[in-house]
């Protein structure tokens, strides 16, 4: 249950922090202003999805984690890390081309990493760990 609490807490903190940042940053005129909440919602939505699954398992008295879920998470994490190296290269390239500000570069990098993780997790869950 401690891990569940952590998942919910991190999801809540991400939402609150992004909300505060959006209100105070004065970036409402920028092109990415409307895209950012959508991406954050996807990331937080994923955390909520994982949290609900774990709570459901807890209620029916089955393990919240087992070898399959751990292996799925490990595989998704490793692939996401590998792809994120390229993602950062892309971000650096565009930051040069478009003269982006530092907060946009870092924000884009972090959100891209989060999206890559969610995508790779979904990919391996649908495709299967051993046959992808």
């Amino acid at each position: 249950m401690r891990k569940d609490f952590l998942i919910w807490m991190v999801a809540g903190l991400v939402l609150i922090t992004v909300g505060i940042w959006l209100i105070n940053s004065g970036t409402s005129g920028e092109a990415g202003f409307f895209l950012l909440p959508v991406v954050v919602l996807i990331v937080v939505g994923f955390a909520v999805f994982v949290g609900i699954r774990r709570y459901r398992s807890y209620r029916i008295n089955e393990p919240q984690e087992d070898e399959y879920s751990i292996r799925l998470m490990t595989r998704a994490t490793s692939v996401a890390f590998y792809l994120s190296l390229y993602w950062w290269l892309v971000v650096m390239y565009f930051s040069d081309q478009l003269q982006l500000e530092a907060h946009s570069i870092i924000g884009g990098g972090i959100l891209g990493m989060a999206l890559l993780f969610v995508s790779s997790w979904l990919y391996f869950r649908i495709k299967g760990i051993d046959h992808a």
């Binding site: 008295n61 393990p63 087992d66 070898e67 399959y68 495709k127 051993d130």
Partner: peptide
């Protein structure tokens, strides 16, 4: 669910095993 409980895994693990999309550990 009963099989999952007997071997100490989540039900979805049995689902993926039956679908053939997951190879289990030796244990």
């Amino acid at each position: 669910l009963e099989l999952a409980r007997k071997v100490g895994v989540r039900r979805e693990t049995i689902v993926f095993l039956e679908k053939g999309t997951y190879n289990p550990s030796l244990k």
